[in-house]
Design a protein around this nucleic acid. Structure first.
Lengths: 195, 195, 195, 195
DNA sequence: GATGAATGAGCTTTCATTCAT
DNA sequence: AATGAATGAAAGCTCATTCAT
């Protein structure tokens, strides 16, 4: 069971996540976060020893959340083609319902290497999420639906494509909402990856 | 002919581009840039009135450079399939030879929206580049090779995919060098977009 | 009752007032003020959000102080002639005992309009003080001692004259101390204003 | 006859006077002045060795100009009462036609002591002007119209009063234009000074 | 005389972090 | 756990002045 302290940490993570994703890492200050929680600056440091550490906890939190979503898809008894569509759907749903998560991933985690350099080497901090994509891919290859190409080429396609679309949406460049692209995009991806 | 001042501006742009892409926008200071050029801080401001303005000039510079590359491909009398491959090749070549450009695009321009908000609305600052992708796509549709889908879906695929791969490379996650993925990736993209 | 923070703000106001009036607004730096209080520069900003805001608080403080002095004179049951003399006396006393106040008024507030433009429109920031002069004048007119001329003409005489004398004193141009002029000056003023 | 250099110096003085009086001494930069004259920054320094020196030349220029005006009044064969009125008139006329002069006097010269400390000790830089006021006063005493009081008390009244009125005008506080106050004010002054 | 690039000291302001309470 | 005052380093930017041309 979660301790009181753990619960408060989660509340802080959520508030910080929203601010970082909206305003950027460097333009969000610790006082900003504290104030949004009506908490004192000093007390924040009782929960997270530094701004950087907080940032790293957030990306782990996001990775865990997304990983859980994908896991439940991977466990279904459906074709890889269908899984592809469901993953795209879940990703866009998250972008719609919890846009701060995807934004954080794209604009904070991927962009501020210096912050995550120590403590998130490789893909440590997004392990939960990457692992599930890997499982999706390997299952697809095993069951004969997907070509056995280099995993990273497939991963780059998947993540780059989806990230790119959410990014374009965030810039108000897309004429339609994300959902309307689900068919096109999952079809594009599946065509690219299938045998 | 370029004035002395214009030449110096380009030298500054190059130095700043390298530092921003390597260390990030907020962690690179004007003194950093000045020092790397053995120039005084004050004099920097004779060329660019603010750090933000410098950042915007850089992205325009990059967009122009990439746009020119793509333009020469678009003008060739070759199939869209071949163009696809050449675009991927040029992009990865740039990522190899001038990695700071792609990095800047991915990690500075796309991530620090507050910096580019004013002055780069929509895609103004990357117009040269986006236009060429648009031409590539429309030509492909016209000559019957590509499906007539929403441009942004295609654009997101292209840019997200390539950006994602370069990103993974930057993280030292890819086991092989970028060139070795050219065939896989251009083939994946073409499969995704063709009729 | 005053909070600790309010008390500290007053201490800062006093220190800044002394420095601004002695050295001028632009030639006094925030580090100067902080150092005179053995306080850190950053902490100054916990009390006043900017140098300009500090300057505005100071003039309000002075106006309030002088206003209170005049108020107690206005409330006395004495002739306007006597009031005139007492006002001159109080003004010169302040110039002697708290010269920084009169100096600030003359040399910082009246001279650096760009600083006080926003937030001190009209006479907002010196309202307490001006109001009492207005009451003095109107009472004098009502009781038949003073001519009913345009208030500003009378105000300009009063304030210009007194300010001018203090200024001359500050320049070490006056051969005698201010007090020795009280009779001459209050008599000059009264002669100028009486019916 | 004036040399070319002297003429150019006067042009610079006029431009600087306008800017200093409008924007203040510290908020007007040498580039500002140079630009307003379409002159290079470096060349400015061929005429005035520093910003401070320029400021001092300007006040001497103003004092000379006003002194000439007063001199012509002092030389007239008219009563001191009439002279009083003419002096007020000339002062207000200047405030209307060349407001930058009076503004400079009030807001730059009188307020930024640190600038004029060296080189304008006492009243050196405004000697021409003060001398004429002194002559006006002494003549008035000699011919029996004015009381023989301390000169500075009279001077403070005159200058403080007039300065105060122009100041109030500059603040848009006076409901009427300055000319309409001439009678009131010269009468107030004369009443204050006469025997 | 004229130009304007170059210098560098110094300013205001911010902010992660600490610490006394 | 909680507060928020305090610290101090560092950032972006300005500007009087100089100097090579």
């Amino acid at each position: 069971m979660k301790t009181k302290k753990e619960l408060k940490k989660e509340i802080i993570i959520q508030a910080a996540l929203e601010l970082f994703s909206k305003k950027g890492f460097y333009t969000t200050t610790i006082p900003d976060i504290a104030q949004s929680l009506k908490m004192s600056v000093g007390n924040m440091y009782n929960y997270f020893k530094s701004k950087d550490i907080l940032a790293k906890e957030i990306i782990k939190h996001i990775s865990h959340y997304l990983g859980e979503q994908l896991k439940s898809i991977n466990e279904k008894e459906i074709s890889t083609e269908e899984k592809t569509k469901q993953i795209v759907t879940v990703y866009f749903q998250t972008a719609n319902l919890k846009p701060e998560m995807i934004d954080y991933f794209l604009r904070v985690f991927l962009s501020n290497r210096e912050v995550f350099k120590e403590g998130c080497e490789g893909m440590i901090c997004v392990n939960d999420f990457v692992t599930e994509i890997m499982i999706y891919f390997e299952d697809g290859v095993k069951n004969g639906e997907l070509r056995d190409q280099d995993f990273f080429s497939a991963f780059g396609l998947f993540m780059g494509y989806l990230g790119g679309m959410v990014f374009l949406k965030g810039e108000n460049i897309l004429p339609n909402n994300l959902d309307s692209y689900i068919d096109d995009i999952s079809s594009n991806i599946y065509k690219a990856l299938k045998v």
